[in-house]
């Protein structure tokens, strides 16, 4: 769930945001329907953002009995401390890790690998996967596969990879890049960006070798039901909790 000023929003390629409901209500619904994990990414840019996010984490933790990850503007040990104390299970960092990779080591030694997720947004430029910041708007010097390896070596517990070329297209996940990431890394890789049909999920587990798949709009706008999706995954030989 992308969160802006306390509401769930959804856009295509990170723009044209539409309201998709109250995050706590949605969290309860998704956990009842069988989601295995929730991810909240705060994309608001207000001054009171930190406090709003901590409050949201607290309200989600009160209601939800499955793990959840929180990200958006986290850049220090103190930020993480507040979110974990309010009930988050994991935090996700992105731009702050690219700008200061040592932050990954610092967070891992303080809180442990298990709660540090590094999110990587990337898109292809002339055939090369390049890491981008600010919701995919700003290219960096970093190449996806090298950065992912560095992130692993610095101790991150998981990588959340979003293909900006696929996000919002509903045309399937970036399975080629995912399979390479999964093959080169020894930490779990979460596929994000591109979910449109149940077969896209099957493909990303089979072809993309993803350890987990993340989607937002297909669930927010009830195009895919989580129960049906998991049933189909199981029928296709992918082990899932039902």
């Amino acid at each position: 769930m992308d969160i802006k000023d306390g509401r769930t929003v959804k856009g295509v390629n990170f723009v044209d945001l539409r309201d998709a409901g109250d995050p706590v209500e949605l969290a309860e619904i998704y956990s009842r329907e069988g989601a295995d994990e929730l991810v909240f990414l705060d994309i608001s840019a207000t001054e009171q953002k930190r406090k709003t996010l901590a409050d949201l984490v607290y309200r989600v933790a009160e209601k939800v009995n499955i793990p959840f990850t929180v990200g958006g503007g986290i850049s220090s040990i103190e930020d993480v401390d507040v979110l974990l104390h309010n009930g988050a299970d994991k935090v996700s960092i992105n731009s702050s890790a690219v700008k200061n990779p040592q932050l990954i080591n610092d967070l891992v030694s303080k809180f442990g690998s298990q709660c540090i997720v590094v999110a990587i947004d990337a898109k292809q430029i002339e055939g090369e996967w390049i890491v981008h910041l600010v919701g995919g708007k700003v290219p960096t010097e970093r190449k996806l596969f090298e950065w992912a390896k560095e992130v692993e070596e610095r101790g991150a517990g998981e990588i959340l990879f979003t293909s900006m070329d696929h996000d919002g297209t509903k045309d399937g996940f970036a399975n080629g890049a995912l399979a390479r990431l999964s093959g080169e890394l020894n930490i779990p890789v979460i596929a994000s960006g591109g979910a449109g049909t149940t077969s896209h999920f099957i493909d990303t587990f089979k072809e993309g070798k993803a350890d987990a798949a993340l989607a937002a709009s297909v669930f927010h706008f009830k195009e895919i039901g989580i129960g049906n999706l998991k049933q189909e995954l199981r029928e296709n030989g992918i082990p899932v909790r039902i």
Binding site: E62, N65, L84, H85, N86, G87, A88, D89
Partner: peptide, 13 residues
Amino acid sequence: AGNIQSIKFAIER
């Protein structure tokens, strides 16, 4: 040590 808020909430639920 760690995330005890979640355990507290689970007990309350």
